[in-house]
Simulated scan of single mutants.
Amino acid sequence: MNEQTPNQEEFYKNFKERLDDTTEFPSNYTFKFIVPTDNKRIAEVQRLFDGARPQFSMKESKNGKYTSVTAVVYVLDADQVIHYYKSASGIQDVMML
């Protein structure tokens, strides 16, 4: 995994605080990603959650260029949510919502 810049560190620190303030853990957490409509990219996103028993849903954009991938996963804490997002940041052309 790539080293984090100070801005990324600050972002994840603030994100963790917001998660802890607004989410009761453990709980189901909804992750949303936008990826180019490409089976390889979609599979990369799905592999992030191997072993987590996710529930996936997908929806192609109107023109078919992008696919929205939603994963609902049972997580134990904010650190686990952040772990998934950091892992997703390594996937080329993925947008995290």
Rank of each mutant, 00 (worst) to 15 (best):
M1N: 14
N2P: 08
N2D: 14
E3V: 15
Q4V: 09
P6E: 08
P6V: 10
P6A: 07
P6Y: 04
Q8D: 13
Q8W: 02
F11V: 04
K13Y: 03
F15K: 13
F15M: 15
K16I: 05
E17G: 01
R18I: 15
L19W: 07
D20T: 03
D20N: 15
D21V: 01
D21W: 00
D21E: 13
T22L: 12
T23V: 15
E24P: 05
E24G: 06
P26H: 08
S27G: 10
S27P: 10
S27H: 01
N28E: 14
F31I: 11
F31Y: 05
F31G: 13
F31Q: 06
K32P: 12
K32C: 05
K32H: 07
F33W: 02
F33Y: 12
I34A: 14
I34Y: 09
T37L: 11
D38K: 10
N39C: 08
K40C: 01
K40D: 09
I42K: 11
E44S: 05
V45T: 06
Q46I: 03
R47C: 06
L48Y: 01
F49T: 02
F49I: 01
F49K: 00
F49V: 05
F49S: 01
D50P: 00
G51V: 03
R53P: 00
R53W: 02
P54C: 00
P54W: 11
Q55N: 13
Q55S: 09
F56Q: 00
F56V: 02
F56P: 01
M58L: 13
K59D: 14
K59F: 13
E60F: 03
E60D: 10
S61W: 08
K62Y: 04
K62G: 09
N63Y: 00
N63E: 01
N63V: 02
G64V: 06
Y66E: 12
T67D: 10
T67I: 08
S68G: 14
V69S: 03
V69Q: 07
T70W: 00
T70K: 11
T70P: 01
V72I: 10
V73K: 02
V73Q: 00
Y74I: 05
V75M: 06
V75F: 01
D77I: 08
D77H: 07
D77M: 10
A78Q: 04
A78F: 12
A78G: 05
A78W: 05
A78P: 08
D79S: 14
Q80G: 12
Q80D: 02
Q80E: 15
V81Y: 02
V81A: 13
I82H: 06
I82E: 01
I82T: 00
H83R: 11
H83A: 06
Y84G: 03
Y84Q: 13
Y84F: 15
Y84E: 10
Y84R: 14
Y85H: 13
Y85E: 09
Y85P: 01
Y85I: 05
S87Q: 12
A88E: 01
A88R: 00
A88H: 05
S89P: 00
I91R: 06
D93V: 04
D93P: 07
M95P: 07
M95T: 14
L97D: 11
